[in-house]
Every structure is written in C-alpha cells, then in structure tokens.
Design a protein around this nucleic acid. Sequence first.
DNA 1: ACAATAGTGTCTATGAGACATTATTGC
DNA 2: GCAATAATGTCTCATAGACACTATTGT
Lengths: 231, 231
Amino acid sequence: MTKYPPFAVAVDLVVLTVREDELSVLLVRRGVPPYQDRWALPGGFVGFDEDLPDAAARELTEETGVPEPVGHLEQLGTYGEPKRDPRGRVVAVAYLALLPDLPVPVAGTDAAAADWFPVSRVADVGLAFDHGVILDDGLERARAKLEYTPLATAFCPPEFTIARLRAVYETVWGTRLDPRNFHRKVTSTPGFVESVGRVTEGDRGRPAQLYRRGTAELLHPPMLRPSTTDG
Amino acid sequence: MTKYPPFAVAVDLVVLTVREDELSVLLVRRGVPPYQDRWALPGGFVGFDEDLPDAAARELTEETGVPEPVGHLEQLGTYGEPKRDPRGRVVAVAYLALLPDLPVPVAGTDAAAADWFPVSRVADVGLAFDHGVILDDGLERARAKLEYTPLATAFCPPEFTIARLRAVYETVWGTRLDPRNFHRKVTSTPGFVESVGRVTEGDRGRPAQLYRRGTAELLHPPMLRPSTTDG
DNA sequence: ACAATAGTGTCTATGAGACATTATTGC
DNA sequence: GCAATAATGTCTCATAGACACTATTGT
C-alpha cells in the first residue's frame, strides 16, 4: 500500500429533523482546530477496519445519543477537493440521516457543544470546511426523496397522524398542501401508510386515526411537489 | 496526518453506452494482480493533489480515448467495505458516465484489453472486486435518471432524431414505447429537445427531423416508465 | 355552546395510454 | 409502385387540484 497516496477518510453527517415546524439540522461546535469554535456537521474519521455505514451509524449514535435503528440513514455523496481540509488530504463520505424529533443532543468528544439549527438560520453562522455545500446537497436530496419515497415517515414517531405527516411535507418543502387532497393521496398510495386502528387521545378536537409506515420503498404514484412558480 | 488511518482512494467508472440496440458497459481485462485476467470496471487511484471529478475524467479519457466533454459524468457512490480489495484498505468513489456510441476503446496502461459488453452478458464473465454491485447501482441510477432528466440525450450524438431517442429509452429500460405518445411527450416537455431545423438524409424512408438537447436539467412532467407489472 | 381539529365528496382540467392513417423518401 | 420510416389526431381513463361541509372531541 505504500505506493499509493495516503488519504484520510472521514464521514460527515447531515442529520435532519422537524422541530417546532422548522426543518432543522444537527450541528456541533468544534472544540479543536481547524475551524475551532465554528459550527460544523458532525462527523469523524473512519477506523481502518470499519465499514463506511458503520462509521456513519457510530457517529450518529455518538452525537444524538440515540440507539441507532430509528429514522433513516443513507449515503449522500463524497467530497474530496484536495484543499477542503487544511490538515491534509481528507476525503469525506457524507451521509444523510432523517430522524423524528428527539431530545436535545449531547456534545461529543471533539465537540464543545451540539444543537439543532433551523436550516433557514444556518447561513447566519456559516459552517466549517465545505459543510455548507454538503448541507445544501443533503437538503436537496431530502426534498427530492419525499416526492417518490415514503421517507417523510422517517421524520415521524412510529405512530403518527396524517396531519403530522402533512406537516412534515409542508415543513420540508416550505409549501402548503391541501389537507383533503393530501389525505386522499396518502391513503390511496399502496404501501405508504397502514392504519394502526387506534386514535389520538388527550388532544383537543376530534381524535385522529393513527398510522404507521407501510412496506413500500417507492411511491407509485409519487407525491407531487407544488410547482415552483412562485416569486 | 500520521494519526489518521491511511487509506487509498480510487475512482471506478461505470461507462454506459447504447450499441447495436444493447445497453453496454465498458470493461477492462486486468493485466496485473489482484484478479489478474478478470474483467473489471475501468478505474485507478486518485492522485494526492487530484480532485475526484478530475480523476474520473482522466480515467475516462484514458480508457476511451475520447476528449472529455461528450456525454455525462456524475458521481455514483462510494464503496469502502474493509475487505473489498485484497491489497489493503481502498475506498472507491464510483462515477457513472453516459456516452454516445463510440469507437472500440483502447487498452490502458494497467489493462490488457478493453471492450464493450452488453450488460445482459456481464453476469457470464463475473466482475472483479465488488464491481458487480457497483455496476448494478449504476444501471439503476441510469434507468431512474432517464425518467426525470434529459440524460437520454447523453447516449445520442449531438444531433439526433426522435426515433433514436426513443430507441435509447427502449434499450435502457428494456421496454417498448408507443412512437406517437413518445413523440408527443418529448416535443411537449419544455426544454427537453429543440429542433435543429434540418432532416436526416441518405436513409431509406421519410426523412426525420433532427433535434439537439434542450436546456432543461429536469423534465416536467417526467417520462414515465411503463409499469413493471410484467411476468 | 363553542372552539378546535379530523375526515370526506364532487367537479374540472390535464396528462397518459391506446389506436390507424397519411406523408415523404429510396429503390 | 412498393417498401420503409416519420409524423400526426382522437378518444378514454386516471389523477391532480380546487373547493365546503360534517363529525367528534375538550373546555
């Protein structure tokens, strides 16, 4: 192996959730150089004998304190511009995680702090490295995948109402959706959701039917994002 | 950097084209161990100061002999299972290239030979490393992207007929499409193709209008793949 | 009773899919 | 004239989008 250029390989995570009607991303405040005290995506180096998805799952657990099998985790893309990390040649394999609303995260070992940021306010703080680009790619991927997969359910607890699912779409897409058409579409798309047979209780208003995620991996027909013909 | 595990980083290419009504992939016969004399995806190690897309474009040019800016090149995914390469820890960043039909490729430096294989016959030869998985991912990506992008045009020469574009869809998807509905759909989707104003000549039959790729990056509405409800 | 939220039905318009004929060329 | 290929129009059906009212609970 000595005849091949030595790279470091890291995983970086775009962890998204819906909190208080805002699409939010998990950021950590860096406790060490480079970019010390700047906000960044959580991540870390891949162990020499560690598989990439394992490294991503490990970082996700470390940063959120959540035992892994909730939500959704997928590879997003790989970022390897030679000067993207001042420490040397670091290739970052980015993963996208979609999670239900969770308790406030705990700071990890290399992070001075960790917190959720509404994505609309991330531009104010400015991210370390090329993490702004990675975040943008993750947001675009998430918005696109809501159209043709049931991944909106990854933002919901195991049992949820149609209204909550609609709120996920509205928050991630930044649009309003007609409740009647949405209800019809979701319940008529095979495998999107299945009824639990129980209803919410304790809330004001008429109780809502509870659903859980169905078995479909793809939505036929897809959920259509309202045309971006706005100003 | 010495405190981080040293990885090698390679790019591997899934190069697809449509030749003789078959979706085909460019393979090289390995001239050196490991997997000597086996067929594999073209690829190679990334230079220490080389950006990933540059490395992919360089490999593509080396293997095809084609000056780069034809067709389409995009990142496909990254494969880093610890034991995927017997030489050590090699992380492969895979790229997907879609090209028009080209002359037979030339063998590169590390390859004993290079040739196009119909994808239906790749299973017969069996690919080195995890390249079978990478190829499958590339095929799925290509088939999906034909639905919602104008990338079918990347398989065509700069000027092409609607019938040729339809043949691309039929070959990549393995389906038949109604010529009338296809023609209507393509010409009514904004930005998919634009007329050149000339026609084919020298062929038998009525001359066909020539088109070039339009400016759209996404197709609204998408081309719909016939439902996979076959036997 | 009132406020709050859930849940449903109809009408219209647009796009998909099926289908047959006419148009233009080379031979 | 004949073979070969390109191009087009109509009808039907499914789905998207707009829209208003009824149902069920907590207070």
